[in-house]
Nucleic acid binder design. Structure first.
Ligand SMILES: [Mn+2]
Ligand SMILES: [Mn+2]
Ligand SMILES: [Mn+2]
Ligand SMILES: [Mn+2]
Lengths: 229, 229
DNA sequence: CAAGATTATTTGACCCTTCAAACATTAGCA
DNA sequence: TGCTAATGTTTGAAGGGTCAAATAATCTTG
């Protein structure tokens, strides 16, 4: 059995036919054309060629059916497609649309090993809930995410994400201490570390490090800033 | 300025020319052909076409030089190339060779947003040293990684990675308890959670959960197994 | 400087993918 | 059952990318 590298187009035809085969209508010329955004006449030609290559059973005006060989290839591609898709949506948090087109573009170049590692990384993050939460928070401050400028109390600013101080609604005593440390509206601030029970919180501002109670931090309003510290 | 989508091939020519431009020889037909694995006659044709598209200044028997427009595109592609490359080598831990060809294949489909997120994820992992270590450990047990079977004390088995017990060198009292729980050579074992200071360690074996001191765990030798739990 | 060697281009051809237009078949309905 | 609309195929043409062989320019060296 020859192992010749199939073109990206051929792979896309097979993947599409596989998907359509699973519908009651089966894989028909018109549906394939619509799915791949080409003219029906182009599909006719492709179907003929795929049949000659032993990947498909098709006769004019009929329904395309994958041969075992064709099905094998198609499932392979479909696997790469969903592997990448999952990474883009679940791990990177991208929209289904962007994930879809990017996955379908890249699926033709991804090797089994690369796919495997990508899946492993996704699993790794998901298997560490606290880390995954942190990553999601960081991600939510990234470019292209909406809403881009979340506002919250300083206590909810995820460690590792920068924030801009909006207001400081604390008592006079703490306020004095904070002002001395430079915690004033407009300044960049970050949470360094949160103790196991969420209290106290280590905060960094203008190069200083200070510690405060969670309840106090909650009274400092911040706006999240894109990017890591 | 028209924003027509350039073909992957054209992007590769531009990227290659950019790289070669930075060498003392400059970008010559033969060198481009060697880099892209095509015949010189093919390059001649491509160079002519690129020049007509205003991406290149080239005249027969000369040295190819990018126009501002061509340089802009080339730098864009080169950026995607290295962005992906870094992800594959640094974050996924793949070989330079595999990373190189995969990056060069995928670079034509990656959007700025996807690239950005990928870079952010890499930064995120690197900015959390303890997590990054854990990830590297998990990675090292994955398919395609060598050496595949690291051996260490149970205390060094990263949470989320399976291990096979090799030997149990503890005192009689603990040994009895462990044997009752099923911790015997050959059994699959995993570390569930490590307390903040690394002690005690929650271990899972044969469906049971038990807690032990780090010092004790160190005396249980294990061989790391591929894949997550 | 004048071969001869090296490097590059031109030419003619091929394959792949696509389209529009003309033609053929099939399906749905009266 | 037959007619029309919907669907599918054929044909002819184009563009992109590639190669081998023939041809041309440039470089190197005695
Ligand atoms: Mn695809
Ligand atoms: Mn796909
Ligand atoms: Mn490339
Ligand atoms: Mn590249």
């Amino acid at each position: 059995m020859k192992i010749e590298r199939l073109s990206a187009k051929v792979e896309d035809y097979l993947e599409t036919i596989l998907r359509l085969s699973e519908t009651p209508r089966g894989a028909r010329t018109g549906d394939i054309a619509a799915a791949l955004n080409v003219q029906p006449s182009t599909v006719s030609a492709a179907l003929k060629s795929l049949t000659e290559q032993g990947l498909l059973n098709y006769e004019p005006y009929g329904v395309a059916e994958l041969t075992p060989k064709g099905r094998h290839v198609a499932e392979e591609i479909a696997g790469r497609h969903v592997g990448l898709l999952r990474f883009f949506t679940d791990t990177l948090g991208l929209t289904p649309e962007e994930s879809e087109v990017t996955a379908c573009g890249m699926e033709h170049d991804v090797t089994p090993l690369v796919l495997d590692r990508i899946a492993l990384l996704g699993e790794f993050l998901r298997s560490h809930p606290e880390l995954n939460e942190k990553w999601r928070a960081v991600r939510s401050t990234a470019k292209g995410e909406r809403p881009p400028g979340v506002e919250s109390g300083l206590d909810e600013l995820p460690p590792g994400v920068r924030g801009v101080v909006l207001s400081v609604d604390v008592g006079a005593a703490l306020r004095k201490r904070l002002v001395e440390m430079g915690v004033t509206p407009g300044v960049l601030i970050a949470v360094e570390r949160v103790a196991p029970l969420g209290d106290p919180i280590a905060v960094e501002v203008r190069g200083y490090r200070l510690s405060m109670r969670k309840a106090e931090a909650a009274k400092i309003r911040v706006k999240w800033r894109p990017g890591l510290i």
